[in-house]
Write a protein that binds this DNA or RNA. Sequence first.
DNA 1: CAGTGAGCGAGCTTCCGCTTGACTT
Length: 780
Amino acid sequence: MAKNLLIVESPAKAKTIEGYLGKDFTVKSSYGHIRDLVKSEDAIDIPNNFAQRYEVPADKKQVVSELKKLAKEAEMVWLASDEDREGEAISWHLFETLGLKNDKTKRIVFHEITKPAIMRAIENPRTIDYNLVNAQQARRVLDRLVGFELSPVLWKKVKPSLSAGRVQSVAVRLIVEREREINKFTAEAAFRIVAIFGKGRDAFKAELPERFAEQAQAEKFLQDCIDAAFTVKSLETRPTKRSPAAPFTTSTLQQEASRKLGFSVSRTMSVAQKLYESGKITYMRTDSVNLSDTALQAAQQQITSAYGDKYYQHRKFKTKSASAQEAHEAIRPTYFNEHTIDGDNSEKRLYELIWKRSIASQMSEAQFEKTTAKIDISSRSEDLVANGEVMKFDGFLKVYLESHDDEDEDDNQDGDSAILPPLTKGQLLALQEMTATERYSRPPARYTEASLVKKLEELGIGRPSTYAPTISTVQNRGYVVKEEREGKTRNYRVLTLKDKAVKHEQKTENTGAEKNKLFPTDIGAVVNDFLVQHFNGIVDFHFTANVEKQFDEIAQGLTEWTAMLKDFYTPFHEGVESTIQTAEKARGERELGVHPESGKKMSVRIGRFGPFVQIGDSDNEEEKPQYASLRTGQMIETITLEEALELFKLPKKVGVFEEKDMTVAIGKFGPYIRHNSAFYSLPKGVDPMSVSEPQAIEIIEEKRKKDAEKLIKTFDENPDVKILNGRWGPYIEFGKLNVKIPKGKEPLELTYEECKALADAMEKDPKAKKPAGKKFAKKK
DNA sequence: CAGTGAGCGAGCTTCCGCTTGACTT
C-alpha cells in the first residue's frame, strides 16, 4: 500500500503526476468539485449567518467513497487541487467529506505539471487557506441566492421554467442591446475615391482620404480630374513592426478556432479535451498567458533549430484581464518538438493552431518598411494617398498570423499590404482609372459565440470552465438563437473616370446576411427588459467586477464573508419582494396599428405558445379576435403591420387528395403541406403562396416514396410501431418515441412485444428518455 | 412544423463553477 495519497482535480493530470512520483504515491482525481449545495430551498440558512447545507451529488458518490477508502489507508493525504478560489474550496470539501485529520493532511499547489514543479510543491506544503475558502463560499452562496430568487420572479411575472443569473442574464443583455443598436442604425452612404496609376506590374492604387456625401460632389471631383496632372508630392518611408500575440487562454483559443477553423465554442472545448487527455496539450481551461520555464526552453530550442537564432525572442506576457486567477499555464503543446500529431482532422487542426501560436509567441517581431506617397492633383486642393508596405523580415509571421473579427474586406484589398513601385518626388503619374464608389457605413457586428465570450471575459464575467456552458444555457432557455439569416439586396452607385470620360453605373450588393450569429428572441428581450427594469443592479455590466473586488477582500482576510453577503442580500431581497408585490406581468405587448379592412386594433405580444399577432380586442366579446404566430426571424419589436398581415394569408387550402384537405403553412422549419395530420416540407425555392394542387400531390408522393425506402418492418398489432433505417442504423419508431435497438439484436427478428418492452424501459429510465429530435422538446 | 391565447391549482422549473463521459435518429 502506498504511503501517500495525492488528490488533484483532473484524472489526466493524476496520471502524469503519478509517473513523476514513483510507488510511494497513489495519485487520484476528485473530478472537480465533490460537493454542492443541496438543490432544495433550505440550502442556505440565511438568518443563521448563511450556513450552507452541502451534499455529495449522486454522480460523485463513487469517487468520494473510493477516495475515503484510500485516505484511510494512507499515512499522508496531499490535497493538490488548483491554486485558486475554487481549487482551495475543493481541498476544503475533500478535507471535510473524507474526514481527514490535520496532522495527516498537507495542502500543496503548483502551476505547471513538470517534475521539478511537483517536487518543489511537495517540499513546501501549507495548510488550507480558509480566507480563500470563504471567498469561494461567498461566491457560491451569492450565485445561488441571485439565481434561485430571481428565477421564481420570472416564473410568476413572465413564464414558468425561465432562469436568471449573474452570468447568463448579462450575456442575454449584451445580445439584446446589440440587436437594438443594429435596428436603430441607419446606414449612411458616401462616395469613396480610388485611383489606379501606372500599368502592369507598376500599377498601384491611391485613395482620397476624404469621402463625398453627395453624388454631385463625387461627379465634380472626377470631372476635375479628367485633364488634371498627377505628381508625386511627397514620399515618406518609415520602419514598422508587428509583434506576436500571447499564447492561448481558453477564451482566445475559442476565438481563433472560431475564426480560423469555424469551430463552435463547445466543439473547440471538446476537441481540446481530447488533446489534453491524450497528453498532447496542457490544460485547456485557463486564463493564464504564462509559459513554464521548461516550456520556454523547449520553444527556444525548436525555434533556433528550425528557423535560426534571429527568429528567437524571449517574451513574457502579462494577462490583460483583471479577473484572471492563473492557476494553470497558457494552453500550449506538451512537446514542442511535435509539430503535428496523429488524430482526427479536427484534433490535428486545433493542435496545429496551438503549436503555431505558442511557438510564434517566442519569436521575433516582423519588420516592415511602410511607404506613404502623397499625390498632388493640379486641379484640386486635396491630395491622394498611396500606402505600400514591404516586409523586411518575417519573424513570427513565418508561422502564425492572428486574425481579427473586425476585418473590413473591402478596405483590405487596397490596404497596407500592397507594394508600391519605385517612385520619386515630383514624378508625373499616368492615371489609368478613377472610381467613386458609394459605400455604406456598417452597423455594429452581431455577436458570434466566440465574440460573446471575448466580451464576457473583458467584463470579468464567467470563467474558462463556464464560457461554453453559458452559451448553451442562454440558447437552451430560448433567450438567444444561433442562426443563419438572409440579407437584403441594396443598390449602390459607381462613377468611373476612364479615357477622359465619366461613366455612371448602378450595381447591387447583398447586405446584412449572417451566418452563425447570435440573435435575441422575444422572450429573451422581454426577460431582459424586466430584469433591467426591476433588478438593474444585478444585470449591470459591472456587478460581477464589484462583487469580485469584495471576494478578493475576503480572500485577503480583510472582509468577513457573511457581512459582505448580508450587505448584498438585504437590499436585493427587498427588491425581490417588492417586485413580486407590485410588478405587472410582462408580456412584451406592442400595438401595431389598425387592421386596414375591419378597422380593428392589431397588436403583438408573447403568449403561452410564443409571440403572436392579434386582430381585435380580447376584452371585447363581439370582436372574436384572430391570431397568428410570428415566424422565425420576426420579432415583436420590429415586425411591421404589413408583415403581420401576411401571417394571416397562411395556412391556405390548396386542394384535396385522397379525400382529405391539403393545407400549406409556414412552420418553424419552413413552409410545409399538412395532409391527414402528416407534415410534408416544401422543397427549397417553392413559393408557399402559389403551390398548386398537382404540385402538392407530387410533393406528398415523393416524401412517401422516400419513407418507404427507410422502412424495414411493420407489425400487425400496431401500425404506429415501425422499424426504420436511420442515419446510425436501424431503430424502432414506437409511436412518437424513437427507441434504440440494443447490440446483438437482429432488427428483422424483433417481435412487437420486444419493441414494446424496449420502449417501456426507455420511458422509465430518466437518463435514456431523451426527446426524439425536436418532436418532444416541449414537455406537457 | 397544427390548433390554441380562460382560469384554477398541484407540482415542477432555477444559479455558477469544478470535472468527465454517455449519447446522439
